[in-house]
Design a protein around this nucleic acid. Structure first.
Lengths: 341, 341
DNA sequence: CTGAAAGCGCTTACAG
DNA sequence: CTGAAAGCGCTTACAG
């Protein structure tokens, strides 16, 4: 395995000069630099990251903690992060951990605690105090995207506002019997993403004078298509007080709700209006009205913040206000319409 | 940052002994071992992977090359790999590269060529000669899961057989006008996954004496739900010779086909039978008949093979014949029925 | 069972 | 602009 000594010998310079020529740090005569590069290319030299990081203290590696890989939002975020990191010359080490448990503890206590990653990005994870403390102790920069927990940079859309806006869209169309397909844990963890969306729903309903109705019309389910399907079946099963509109906490749930409605012989949007949150790539095909967000861009932004925290000057654009919520947009399609009169 | 010297000093032993005690390699008196462990815990010592790998030559890190993260099959494989690697104490470095291009070259020529990963797992990527040669030159063990290309261990289901079986299921139900929603590149790359499934379809059709029909009934599309939707719309649009059954190259395509049929007023399975491949977690909800495969288990198996190649003796079970295809199973649900007469 | 020493492959002050 | 030397934090023969 070619080492820098081999390159130096071939180019007739010292290891120090070879190192400087290849890394671009420090001054090297143009001719020398070229000679070293030729030598390196000739023997296929590539620096050992381990050796380099041992002395620089930088691993050029970022850890990403993410509970799902196979749900649209998370997959998009991950792809966005991966691409941005690769462009910046960083590796991405993936930790696919979900809810609390042994695996999760092991990731935070061992894997992330080592000097293997320069920083960590947590996506959609509600960090415990112990976890943020652990990260802080190691002085590891970290940014949290769409999750809760103290410390670190925090990036997210305004989930409460998104929930309120979705609900207001339905109210504006004249609906009054509006149900909410909430994500799991929405009621018990008001700080979480599903919790905030539910809060937004309740607020909008209360503001419109439908407070008492609202509570009875919430069903929690997994934020997936089958989750939405099952939840919607439950919601639409009571013939008497069947809602005329559903606000689903995610587009995947909304797709399931649409399917459930069809299965029950209810036309969408004739008998039931459905709105989601996400801007899923399938939304167009389903004609789904939704509050779009941009997970790919969010992932890239998280990387920008991390690089900034790591002092990489390559980060061109000034970062957005860390306080400001990430952009969203209401996109109206054919799944919502005026309430039946 | 606590180093092993600190632990050694605190425990009153040499660095060598501290290292042996912590790693479990070499003999250390039980009492000494315990003392070292207490000392390490006290100052929160965790070994630097960079320093360790510099001397051992092992990074305890495996690179995973995967074109998508957000398609069910790939996401499941990735989760399976991640879990198995974590259990074995390895990290997973993710390279989300798709079709040929600059990014892809950069991953193979730079990222994977460094001594940062001990091995690589490629999922669903058709490796070029140059890429396999590059991996070989670095003497990096690699296993390829569901992709084509020479060299390395190769794991996959028998896609040709799966395609044939799916088609035979429909033939067996009396269908003769059977269409195939193929994945992109199926016709141009017969070695690829969509290519093999298409071959299986053609073979089964030919064996049943419907050869001439078959070719006209193939449409290629992205292996996603919108891809299947669009493709099926095209397939079902010709009223005269409308097929009575569709074999979709993936479950996601099949879901799209089901939706397209419904949109056109065709009942599934009354007017159209649909079968897919994958065993997607939504298949049950859609009542989809499919050829199941087990991507999570496939991912774990790929890790077993890699660990075996790396000489980890911890790999308990003997590996399956490297020649034998991975398991699949025909699961009949409500999306297929006898051909209308 | 334990320790002193060498060395893995780099980079970085420090001189010149 | 370039080189000699030290050192990052480990592990591993080699002695004892």
């Amino acid at each position: 395995m070619a080492a820098i000594g081999d390159v130096a010998r071939l180019a007739g310079v010292s290891k120090a000069t070879a190192s400087r020529a290849l890394s671009g740090r420090g001054h090297v005569a143009e001719a020398t630099r070229r000679r070293v590069e030729v030598a390196a290319a000739e023997i296929g030299y590539i620096a050992s990251p381990a050796a380099a990081s041992l002395v620089t203290g930088r691993t050029m590696n970022v850890g990403v903690v993410i509970p799902f890989v196979n749900r649209w939002f998370f997959g998009e975020v991950l792809e966005g992060i991966e691409r941005a990191l690769l462009e910046a010359g960083y590796d991405l080490t993936l930790y696919n951990v979900g809810s609390a448990g042994e695996d999760r503890d092991r990731v935070f206590d061992f894997f992330l605690a080592r000097k293997r990653v320069d920083a960590v990005i947590a996506v959609g994870v509600d960090l415990t105090e112990r976890e943020t403390a652990s990260l802080d102790r190691r002085e590891k920069p970290f940014v949290s995207l769409g999750g809760s927990g103290a410390g670190g940079a925090r990036l997210s859309i305004d989930d409460r506002a998104a929930g309120a806006l979705a609900t207001e869209h339905l109210l504006h169309l004249g609906h009054t019997r509006i149900a909410h397909l909430a994500g799991e844990g929405a009621a018990s963890t008001p700080e979480s993403v599903p919790g905030c969306r539910r809060e937004g729903f309740l607020e909008a309903m209360a503001a419109a004078g439908h407070a008492s109705d609202a509570d009875a019309h919430i069903v929690e389910a997994e934020m997936t298509m089958p989750g939405g399907y099952t939840g919607a079946l439950q919601l639409l099963g009571h013939p008497g007080r069947r809602p005329s509109a559903v606000f689903a906490a995610s587009d995947e749930m909304a797709f399931g709700a649409i399917r459930a409605a069809e299965r029950l012989g209810l036309a969408v949007p004739g008998d039931l209006s459905v709105i989601g949150v996400d801007g899923h790539e399938y939304a167009e095909m389903f004609g789904l009205t939704t509050i779009e967000q941009y997970p790919g861009a969010q992932g890239r932004l998280a990387v920008d913040v991390v690089l900034h925290l790591l002092g990489e000057d390559a980060v061109a654009d000034p970062l957005p206000d860390s306080g400001a919520p990430l952009p969203t947009r209401l996109v109206v399609r054919s799944s919502t319409t005026a309430a039946p009169r």
